[in-house]
Design a protein around this nucleic acid. Sequence first.
DNA 1: CTACAACTTTGAGTACACTCTAAGTCAAGG
DNA 2: CCTTGACTTAGAGTGTACTCAAAGTTGTAG
Lengths: 134, 134
Amino acid sequence: MVTKTEYTIQQVAEITGLSGHTLRYYERIGLLSSVDRAANGHRRYTDDTIREIEFLNKLRATGMPIREMQHYAELRRQGQSTLAERQAMLKSHHAVVTEQLRLLQEYLKVIEYKITLYQQLQEEQQHESTPVGS
Amino acid sequence: MVTKTEYTIQQVAEITGLSGHTLRYYERIGLLSSVDRAANGHRRYTDDTIREIEFLNKLRATGMPIREMQHYAELRRQGQSTLAERQAMLKSHHAVVTEQLRLLQEYLKVIEYKITLYQQLQEEQQHESTPVGS
DNA sequence: CTACAACTTTGAGTACACTCTAAGTCAAGG
DNA sequence: CCTTGACTTAGAGTGTACTCAAAGTTGTAG
C-alpha cells in the first residue's frame, strides 16, 4: 500500500522556517507549483514541495531576488526543455555568490583589524591612567 | 604649508560608491559625524570622513543594520570611553558574519550539486533523443 | 544681467519582501 | 447548536534603506 505523506501549512511552516503567511505568499506569486488541496480547501503539501521550498530558501539566503526565483519557477513549470536555461541561471547565481563570499571574507578581515586596533587603544588608555612620573 | 585635501559631495560619491543622496541621508541620520561646510554651505569632506564612510560601507555590506550602525556612530561620538563597547559590537558582528559565511558556503555546495544534476539530466535527454533501437 | 550647474533643505515616494487584517468557511468537541 | 481554532481569500499595511522632488541659494561663464 502506497501512502503519500502529506503536511498541513502549519507543519510545513515549522519544517521550512517560513511562516504560513509567507508560504501562501510564495504560492500566490508563483514560486510554488501546484499545492494540492484537501476536501475542505486546505493546503496539503508533499515531501516534494517541501524539498522545493527548502531549495528556494537556499536561493533566497544566498541573495537571489524574488523576481529571479519567479523566473526560475516559471522555467521549471515549462518542463525539461528549460533544463539548460535553469542550469545557466544557477551557474550565474553561483558566480555572484562566490564573489559575494570573497568580499565578505575581505571585509571580515578589516573588521578583525579594527578589533585588534581597539584592543591596542584600550591598552594604551590603561597605561595613561597610571599617574605621570610615578 | 599644510593643506588639508577636501572633497565635494560629488567626489566623495565617486570615491565611496554611495550616491550624493545617500551621503546626505547618512549624515542626517547621524552616521557621519561633523561634515564641514564651505562658505556657500556646500559640504566639504576630509580624508578622515572618507575612511569613515568606507568602513561604514563594509559594515553595511556585511549586513549590519542601519540602526546598529547608528548606535556605533553614536558611541564613536562619545569618545574613547566607549572603546570597549565599540569593540564588543564589532566582535559580535564578526561572529554573525562568520556564521553567515559558513551558511553561504554550505548553500553554495547545494547549488553546485544542483548544477551537476542538471548536467546529468541534460545528458540523459540527449541519449533519449537518439532513435530507439538504432 | 542672465543662464546654468551644483549644491542646499525637508519631506515625500519607491522597491523589496514580507506580514497582517478582515471576512468568511469548515470540522470537531462540548 | 454553538464555540473554537485552523484554515481560506484578496487586499492593505509594515519595515528597511534608500531615492527622489520641490523650492531655494550660490558661483561661474557668456
